[in-house]
């Protein structure tokens, strides 16, 4: 039991350090998608654009992050201000993989009533990286 736990800690320590660039996160989601989808065509900013603005339920991503993700958003229910989502406008975004996963989990659950696929995450990130900064 202890041996197993020690091994887990050793493996954790061996993982690459966090604080990545958004492009590295995008590459990792795309690499993951390649293992999940046969003939994965690669990330697409235009598919991400459609996904971001589509109403998946009562909500779309844009419901809170607004139609222009390089501008500040507002929580559609509580009115709480949300900092711009696009990394081109907000250097804090998409740097910490665990944080990014946490928000994809919560927000996909709320908006799509399911988890998002790696391909969808890669597409959205490709779209956000193409969004004009400081608009």
């Amino acid at each position: 039991m202890f041996h197993r736990f020690a091994m887990a800690i050793a493996l954790l320590a061996a993982l690459p350090a966090k604080a990545d660039t958004p492009q590295q996160l995008l590459d990792r989601y795309a690499a993951q998608a390649r293992t999940e989808v046969a003939a994965y065509p690669g990330p697409s900013a235009s598919a991400g654009n459609r996904f971001f603005h589509a109403r998946h339920s009562d909500w779309s991503c844009a419901s809170c992050h607004t139609a222009d993700p390089s501008t500040p958003g507002k929580h559609v229910v509580t009115g709480k201000p949300i900092a711009p989502l696009a990394p081109t406008a907000n250097a804090q975004r998409f740097r910490d993989p665990a944080r990014v996963e946490k928000w994809f989990k919560r927000n996909c659950s709320d908006t799509l009533r399911r988890t998002c696929t790696s391909a969808e995450k890669a597409d959205v990130l490709a779209y956000l990286l193409s969004a004009k900064g400081g608009a």
């Binding site: 197993r4 736990f5 091994m7 887990a8 800690i9 493996l11 954790l12 993982l15 993951q32 293992t35």
Partner: peptide
Amino acid sequence: IHTLHSSVITIAIRAL
């Protein structure tokens, strides 16, 4: 290998 990492990490996180 990634899958193995994930399951071991899950065990570690649950233990923690």
